[in-house]
Design a protein around this nucleic acid. Structure first.
Lengths: 337, 337
DNA sequence: GTGAAAGCGCTAACAG
DNA sequence: CTGTTAGCGCTTTCAC
């Protein structure tokens, strides 16, 4: 069932049918009714390929998945994808996932753009200095970043307020009487890690607490490195009384290290983990106090709306820069000093 | 730079240029050289949308990601996606990832098919009875299954020999002198779990060893359930001397349980895990003996080739049903009884 | 308010 | 071997 057949069936021209279906004004309400109903009855589905050709857009956005060597399933990545596809489906936009080639990630962006396979991109996992964003900006390709960069002005993004999350965590610990607070963090090249790190320092200073570099190890985004980082803290002459971990993979590792060393979590050592426990964790017994990015913010939905806006090309920058606030979800992994 | 411009530039007709570029035979070698070179120099990239419209295919395959409630990043799923995109890129086929809607997974397949957004599908994570495969078969939609179903005849698939993997594990343990072998497995609705389970039983019988239901708990695809399953085994009056776990998530949990209970792995209890340790595990100290699906089989590449074949519609069934053999990768988690 | 006709960029008969 | 021509299915001027 194509447009021609539908038009013939209705004894109308393709033009009129097309306009009726696409909600143009210059078609009588009565005709529109007829057309819409017939379309439904006959199961007419416009051919998106033909549509794309005529309109000059692909009706798809791309997301490039970097296949780092030994790369693991990044839960972060997949949850973005999941939320997005759902949100985009409502706008009749497809999500095209491409793997970065060996030649590099930028090359993949280029291929997708010059091949007109997508109208724009989602850039996930932003770095503080992100060459992908530099590239897309200078190439004039529409995109929406999931996370900001060092200079967040001038392009569309969706992000959570990372600094605020850390501040909330510090303030909570300070209220519980802690003064020696450690901080395990991922590479500060990640913008989220940088922001959380900055928020931590800021809050510590505001509380007139010492910011001790030896208590602020870098750990990477992995269980194992969180484990090692925590062991490192435990080997020091003086222990912190609390520790904040800026990502939940390292967080699980860190908690495991405490368990292995027999440290009483919440008593000897208070723990707050950004994003809490990963879903399928082996720490089920322990209810970790967490900085969370509340689900009611529906990142996927928001981002779908934002990217649609971006693709339309008709927007004010401040409409497509969205910052959501995190919250503290109290658990049992922290307590009075 | 479109075909017309390129042709004008070469003083040739679009037809000739098109044929030269698409490797038709009826164009002089000299002309082809010129065309190809000009295309490269001028950076000509065919518009895939126009191409799709003319050819009547989308040049894309779909993969539907079921968004189960609380679904986690499935490493299995992502690694398939990663390998596939790479392999498909070489064939100029895109991978379209769609989330299942609330209305159900089948509905999503239907939407993609009637919308002509894809030419076929990859169906991952097959169940023993899989309604998706039933649906696609009866709808006459091309697809390639990653994993088989109860009845694997009559449609294209790529799979590993699950039963063989279990047999190899059992045989290895038997040679080490084990007679009390336990088996922790995922839901037998998954075809891979069923096959591995069947292979286990078969090999046990072949070795004249007892198949004890109480030593064969079902654990699900999760660290936590593997943990609990192992605890269950340890609570029994008589312990097995070895245990095989049919997936690596549950495997990690099971090993963790042994560690927590202070059981000497490889001495008091031998362990073999299908697929070994997940990449970022907290068991780094332990080198687990594993049944592996060797990387040299390049599942992604193979599947890309197979699906291309399937889409062409011109194939013998036995060319698109591919079974790879697993291997044992010896570690230190098993030893003499 | 409706229709005829000209593309969107490419491929594929069909002639020469 | 090469060019002419007619689509693929839809949108969109431009007339009526």
């Amino acid at each position: 069932m194509d447009l021609k057949a539908l038009a013939a069936n209705l004894q109308l021209s393709m033009t009129t049918v097309s306009r009726a279906l696409n909600g143009y004004s210059d078609v009588s309400e009565k005709t529109r009714q007829r057309v819409v109903e017939a379309a439904r009855n006959l199961g007419y589905q416009p051919n998106p390929v033909a549509r794309s050709l005529a309109l000059g857009r692909a009706n798809a956005v791309g997301i490039v998945h970097p296949l780092e060597h030994g790369d693991v399933a990044d839960p972060r990545f997949l949850s973005v994808v999941a939320g997005l596809t759902e949100g985009l489906a409502a706008q009749h936009i497809d999500l095209l996932i491409a793997s970065a080639t060996e030649k590099g990630e930028l090359d993949t962006y280029d291929r997708l753009v010059t091949g007109r396979r997508v109208d724009g991109f989602i850039v996930a996992r932003t770095l503080r200095q992100d060459e992908r964003i530099d590239y897309l900006r200078q190439a004039g390709v529409p995109f929406l970043a999931y996370g900001r960069t060092a200079d967040a002005s001038g392009y569309p993004w969706f992000d959570f307020d990372n600094a605020a999350g850390s501040r909330m965590a510090v303030e909570r610990l300070v209220e519980l009487g802690h003064r020696r607070i450690a901080y395990i963090h991922a590479s500060l090249h990640y913008n989220f890690a940088y922001g959380r790190h900055a928020g931590f320092i800021e809050a510590m200073r505001a509380a007139a607490l010492p910011v001790e570099p030896r208590w602020m190890p870098s750990a990477g985004l992995a269980r194992s490195s969180g484990y090692n980082a925590m062991l490192g803290l435990l080997e020091q002459a003086q222990w912190p009384s609390a520790v904040i971990i800026d990502n939940n993979l390292a967080g699980e590792g860190a908690v495991r290290a405490l368990l292995d060393r027999g440290v009483a979590i919440g008593r000897q050592m208070s723990v707050i983990v950004y994003d809490g426990s990963p879903p399928d964790t082996l720490l089920n017994g322990i209810n970790i106090t967490a900085v969370i990015q509340p689900a009611h913010h529906h990142p996927g939905r928001h981002m779908a709306g934002l990217i649609a806006n971006v693709l339309s090309g008709d927007y004010q920058l401040d409409e497509v820069q969205m910052l959501c606030q995190p919250e503290i979800l109290a658990g049992e992994s922290d307590g009075p000093c």
